[in-house]
Design a protein around this nucleic acid. Structure first.
Lengths: 232, 232
DNA sequence: AAAAAAGATTAATGAAAAGTTAATTGACTT
DNA sequence: AAGTCAATTAACTTTTCATTAATCTTTTTT
């Protein structure tokens, strides 16, 4: 029983990023069509069906916002997300105002993009709504802003260090899934040796300390394997 | 040599506010015509020329947004700004999205309104285009006019240097969002090197000094990442 | 049940980053 | 040529934070 591939339309004018993303996403078992401008994308949407659109915001001729508007008119059921180098509040707001399901800041982390896409498609299928946008994660009674590196519990605000934030972000994206030492260390430290593993332990302890106020959150160790961020 | 008065059309259904504003603005040497609904305003626009329209958003019959749309169709050169008691982000966005040049929250501070109108008309006359349409900011108890490079606290006025103003402008547009050194330096200094980063630090110190009178404003550092202008 | 391995926790360290004030440079005016 | 003002550089202090170390606890293996 092989699952049907999800079909994604990517509109990105940069050849580098467009090529990179389409390669990576097809490797990750998505069926991906890449267009370099809004006109050709719209034309293609007339004849093909997609599950998700990924739109770059800054493009010549037609920018991602205008494209999204036209898409909304003609293909109201197609969810879309934006890619953008700009993090202006007005841009982000405008994005969500237009009905975007997500807004990712460049540079794009391909692995994170895949996780988000998968979450999104799951969520859209199951109608489950989670409070989540670019930087904001709902973490039990906490909210975690990965961009500002802030973890908030009620009116208490914890300013996380970069490593703390990166680690929490990594775990949150993969909540309730075992994350091996090895993968964490390679992704966040660049290599997987004895001393970095010791360092990781220290950071796990710190995160546990931050998160202890909500008993429904725990970071559990799987002996000689790695860690799981458990929710509920 | 007496300057020609600027003509303003005000559409405001509330008798109190309408009267107050038209009195105050004529006192300030504007020629002002006040209408209590969109229909009569549109009718009048057929026969009279104006430099600026001020539209209330919440009005019976025709709200400010619809009025603005019709005005845009028929008198595309007439700049308009909105007044609104509602400060919902979507409203503000919608306003700018429709092409508004400004968006003022009620209760209206008449003095601020005049400053904004004058700035607007100056700007429109001189064809000077700024990066963003938003150049006048309420910053806690301060107001910041990025065009004039003036930061005002009560009756105290700080004349900012160009760099100070640019930096504050950059941060204000991205308030409560982490701005990386790199992005700031590339945008404002043109390149990202050790010495410019030192320079940035000096400017951050200066801005903090200016802003210290309002405890709800802070420019916070995120170690080895950048700065966040926090409000509230 | 003892030994070994893995993990947890707290504290110490030291290099890099940030903060601050003052001095210097450079462009422009008078 | 002296003066002014803004931006940059310098000199110095303070803070931050990833790492390392030291010690204790839990789990696994023998």
């Amino acid at each position: 029983m092989n699952k049907k591939k999800h079909r994604i339309i990517l509109v990105e004018d940069s050849a580098d990023l467009g090529y990179l993303l389409s390669e990576y996403l097809s490797m990750k078992n998505f069926e991906i069509s890449w267009f370099v401008n809004g006109i050709s994308a719209l034309k293609n949407l007339e004849v093909n069906k997609y599950d998700l659109a990924i739109l770059d915001i800054t493009m010549p001729d037609m920018d991602g916002f205008s494209l999204a508007e036209q898409m909304k008119d003609r293909f109201p059921d197609l969810p879309f997300l934006f890619l953008s180098a700009r993090s202006l509040k007005v841009d982000v707001l405008k994005g969500f105002y237009l009905g975007a399901v997500d807004y990712l800041k460049k540079p794009i982390d391909e692995e994170e993009l895949v996780i988000r896409i998968e979450n999104l498609l799951n969520r859209l299928n199951s109608e489950k709504r989670v409070e989540e946008d670019i930087f904001h994660f709902k973490l039990g009674q906490y909210t975690f802003n990965s961009l500002n590196q802030e973890l908030v519990f009620n009116d208490e605000i914890f300013h996380l260090t970069t490593k703390e934030s990166e680690l929490l972000h990594y775990l949150v994206l993969r909540q309730n899934v075992l994350c091996s030492h090895k993968d964490i260390l390679i992704k966040l430290w660049g290599n997987n040796d004895y001393f970095n593993k010791k360092s990781l332990n220290v950071f796990i302890t710190r995160l546990r300390k931050y998160l202890e106020k909500d008993v429904n959150i725990s970071i559990d160790n799987v002996h000689s394997q790695g860690f799981i961020l458990h929710l509920e």
